[in-house]
């Protein structure tokens, strides 16, 4: 496979949530999401229940992929920040550490400048956590440690999913 499998552990999950929770507060945002580039939601804080988070994750990743394609066409590596302005709500989308997408939804109680400033700081922290996560996964693989839940699944387990 071209890309290593994305794995999330409890410890890092907590750390990530602390960072985005703080970002939510400091940027005066409504919702903050983290999405992986393949469209899978990693975590979300704020008024998440008001939104279809799964669809939001998939469309965000599609959006980043499409603008990434545009960037390559004009000779750029990527566009690392996207901003969508609506009548009431705005979306600030940025790429963190080259591999995950940070989405901040905010309204008139915040401003683009404030969001950009706070996102920059949080991105560095998030980037460090994801580096650690990647290293951890690699280390485990090297040592042959596997707490993988699927290692012992049987055909029956799989068939039961569809019954």
């Amino acid at each position: 496979m071209s890309t290593p499998q994305m794995v999330m552990y409890d410890e890092e999950f907590q750390e990530i949530n602390e960072v985005i929770q703080r970002l939510l507060k400091e940027a005066n945002a409504k919702v903050v999401f983290l999405v992986d580039k393949n469209g899978q939601l990693i975590s979300g804080v704020g008024e998440t229940e008001r939104f279809d988070t799964t669809s939001l994750a998939s469309l965000t990743a599609g959006n980043i992929a499409a603008t990434g394609g545009l960037a390559k066409l004009i000779g750029e590596k990527e566009f690392s920040i996207l901003f969508h302005e609506g009548e009431k709500d705005n979306l600030h989308i940025s790429i963190v550490g080259g591999r995950v997408i940070l989405v901040v939804l905010f309204d008139k109680h915040s401003s683009l400048g404030l969001v950009r400033l706070r996102v920059k700081k949080s991105s560095e922290e998030l980037s460090a956590i994801f580096d650690k996560l990647l290293k951890k996964a690699e280390d485990r693989e090297k040592r042959g440690v596997s707490d993988f839940p699927f290692a012992e699944i049987t055909d029956d387990d799989i068939d039961n999913l569809f019954s």
Partner: peptide, 15 residues
């Protein structure tokens, strides 16, 4: 590339 989340105990796959 599937995404395994031990924190929320989820596995996500893309078809």
């Amino acid at each position: 590339m599937s995404f395994i989340n031990y924190a929320s105990r989820e596995i996500n796959c893309k078809i």
